[in-house]
Amino acid sequence: MSRRPLTVAAIAGCLLLVSSACGTTSENSGQGSQPGQTGSSCQGPRGSYVIGMSQANVAEPYRQRMDDDIAQAAAAIPQFTVEFADAQQDNAKQVSDVENFLIQQVDLLIISPNEATPLTSVVKKVYDRGVPVVVLDRKVDGDSYTTFIGADNTEIGRQAGRHMAEQVLPDGGRIAEIRGLAGSTPARERSTGFAEGIEGSDIEIVAAADGDWLREKGQAQADAILKAHPDLQAVYAHNDPMAEGAYLAAKAAGRDQQLKFIGIDGLPIPSGGIKAVEAGRLSATFIYPTGGQEAIDAAKALLIDCQQVPKTQILPTQLVTQENATEIYDRANSG
Rank of each mutant, 00 (worst) to 15 (best):
D90E: 07
D86N: 15
Q72Y: 04
D86I: 01
A75T: 08
Q88F: 08
L102E: 06
Q72P: 01
E99Q: 15
A73E: 01
L102P: 00
D67H: 00
Q104E: 12
Q105V: 03
D90R: 13
K93L: 14
Q72H: 10
D68C: 05
A59E: 12
A59D: 13
A56S: 14
Y62M: 09
I103A: 12
A85G: 05
A85K: 07
Q105I: 04
Q104G: 02
Q88W: 04
D69G: 10
E60F: 12
Q104Y: 00
Q64S: 13
M66V: 03
Q79A: 13
M66G: 03
A74W: 02
E60Y: 12
V58D: 08
I77A: 03
A74L: 05
P78K: 06
A74F: 04
Q89M: 11
A56H: 03
F101D: 02
D97C: 09
N100C: 00
Q105F: 01
Q79Y: 07
Q64W: 05
L102D: 00
V82A: 05
E99D: 14
Q64E: 13
D86R: 11
Q55C: 14
V82M: 06
Q88E: 11
Q79N: 08
V98P: 04
D68W: 05
Q79V: 05
I103Y: 02
F101L: 06
A75C: 08
V95R: 11
D97G: 09
A74V: 06
A87R: 06
E60V: 13
N57M: 08
Q89T: 07
E60C: 01
R65K: 14
I103M: 02
D86Q: 10
T81C: 04
A92G: 07
F101A: 02
D90M: 10
V58F: 03
D90Q: 12
Q89Y: 04
A71I: 05
A92M: 09
Q55T: 10
F80S: 03
Q72C: 03
Q55A: 15
Q72A: 15
D68A: 12
Q64V: 02
A87G: 10
L102I: 06
